[in-house]
Write a protein that binds this DNA or RNA. Structure first.
Lengths: 322, 322
DNA sequence: TTACCGTATGACATCGATTTCAGGTCAACC
DNA sequence: GGTTGACCTGAAATCGATGTCATACGGTAA
């Protein structure tokens, strides 16, 4: 438990001077500085960060608030930690399980100065509730959010989805079945707009093939294949909300002896780790870049630095399922 | 920035009394307690956790030290955060990328009292180096470790691997090809022992079929299929170090028109998320239970509580690849 | 010569809590 | 009546750093 006072004593200086020598801020003669440094080394000194945080008011710690940290959030987590550590910050996790009360706990942690800032990945709470806490520190969302106090690193999924649709069109598919995620998400709505525009552009009938909504899992994908068989094979391609649904479709197709892309094409979204295993064509979603942008925004608010954030881009990854 | 002094002032008591009223420790008359509580509510008081940590010497924060937080570590992370939050602890991440210098940074964070304890998931550093830091707080490893100061939540992979081997034997496979991971890991050595014992038990020739070592990725799996084809199909089953390798084998087999399990069986290890998609038979590795045990150990050291930890078990998950 | 600035240093206040200590009241018990 | 102990309270010390302020020295510009 050696503290800065002991260092000062051993070096024969005041604690103020010891602090200056250790931190490099302010004037210290070279001689005393060396004395302090050697004293610190001899006594195996390490500053108590709680004291530093208390005094300076900054913890150099940011909170990541998410329902869980498994796929696809682990990529975001890893990216955020990476950016944070590069800048001498550390990341503390708050797991909500999409429970609003737990989200408030994370916000309270900000208020209690356990962290300097928060990154919200998905949340239930009212935006106005969250906005009440920005007075305690910057809050950034990875989700499209319309609020002047809360920046977001959202990417317009319109662009990404259009990439998928154009690709399918180019490959000759005309009866595209959309498999959307939760309809209340703005992301889903953007994709629907993309599809509408796509149909207009190529003069296709938007209702030629039914769409699915609120589908998220591999199991959903499997069901869709059976639906497809039982309903006269009404589509020649599936544009999926994510790689899980796409994988479910492919897996079930294989089980039933169908061939992809001959019987139908499948395009995923996210480019998850396992996509190459299934040779899945998908839209790469640069999650790590978004994490690093989220951190950049926070940093710019805390340290008042201007940071040019180059916008991440969706990218088509062509494999063998289209 | 309302602090406890303001509360005390508004309630007409001393800070000591306010602290007692708020924390519930020590004697306070019911009347003053109420006065303090209402004052706190009116002024929207929230304690500064840095001050609390400084004074009490405990942060109720533990550090998770891992090379990254993507699969399969995201499950461990999620599990650890879950257990921690249940007990009023929070988890801070330290990403090492298997870099020893970064591991020291995490250890230093413990020394500097940024966290109360550490969980090491995989590491490079010498055990003795890590052991030097246990004087600053408990350290637990998720890895087999032989050191009296550092408990570990390791599971003997001998048992898990034997489960896989017995299953393959039962299904009639006799020419089993082992695909091992890094040979310097004790886990791998345990598996090799399991295989030796297995051969003895059923009177099989351990060298009947060559083994692979230091294989970890899906790409490695793909190569192994080509090797198998080019070398006269010397195995009828693959027992894999993890699901990634197994997936690579399955994916490549499909591309080459081979059939699983008719041409050869494949058994994975870990039971990752995507295993069901490939209908992969695998050994379920209860990662989340291990995380919760890791936390239990830490808690028992910090709070001096006896916690019965029931040992997690490997489990065979039969699907269609064996 | 005076004024001023850069360098150097230590005393002391400060961040915001907790906790010890000493003192005080009041009832119960011997 | 005196002792004991439970209950209650606030002054002050404490955790371990940082930062302000006053003071001082020496050199340079006016």
């Amino acid at each position: 438990m050696t503290n800065i006072q002991e260092i000062a004593q051993r070096a024969g200086v005041s604690p103020s001077t010891a602090s200056r020598a250790l931190s490099g801020r302010g004037y210290v003669s070279e001689e005393k500085k060396q004395r302090v440094l050697t004293a610190a080394a001899e006594l195996d000194y390490a500053p108590n960060l709680n004291a530093v945080s208390l005094k300076t008011g900054s913890t150099r710690r940011i909170g990541l608030v998410a329902p869980r940290f498994t796929e696809p959030l682990s990529l975001f987590t890893t990216g955020l930690v990476h950016s944070a550590e590069e800048n001498g910050y550390t990341v503390t996790l708050f797991m909500t399980g999409l429970n609003a009360a737990k989200e408030v706990e994370a916000l309270e942690a900000l208020r209690r100065k356990q962290v300097d800032a928060l990154v919200f990945v998905m949340f239930q709470s009212d935006l106005s509730l969250i906005a009440d806490y920005v007075k305690y520190g910057p809050i950034v969302c990875w989700q499209r959010v319309i609020h002047e106090a809360i920046p977001s690193v959202f990417m317009n999924q319109y662009d990404g989805y259009m990439l998928a649709l154009e690709h399918l069109y180019e490959r000759g598919y005309r009866r595209i079945c959309n498999v959307y995620g939760a309809t209340q998400r703005l992301n889903t709505q953007s994709r629907m707009e993309a599809f509408a525009d796509f149909c207009r552009k190529y003069d296709l009938d938007p209702l030629a093939c039914p769409s699915f909504e609120n589908r998220d899992t591999a199991r959903d994908g499997e069901q869709i294949v059976r639906w497809w068989l039982e309903n006269g094979r009404p589509a020649d391609a599936f544009a999926c909300t994510n790689d899980w649904v796409a994988s479910g479709i492919i897996a079930e197709a294989r089980r039933l002896g169908l061939r992809v892309p001959e019987d139908f094409a499948v395009c995923g979204f996210d480019n998850l780790d396992f996509a190459p295993l299934l040779d899945l064509t998908t839209i790469h979603y640069p999650v790590d870049e978004q994490a690093s942008n989220a951190f950049a925004i926070i940093r710019s608010r805390i340290e008042d630095i201007e940071l040019p954030t180059h916008p991440p881009r969706f990218r088509l990854v062509e494999r063998l399922t289209t």
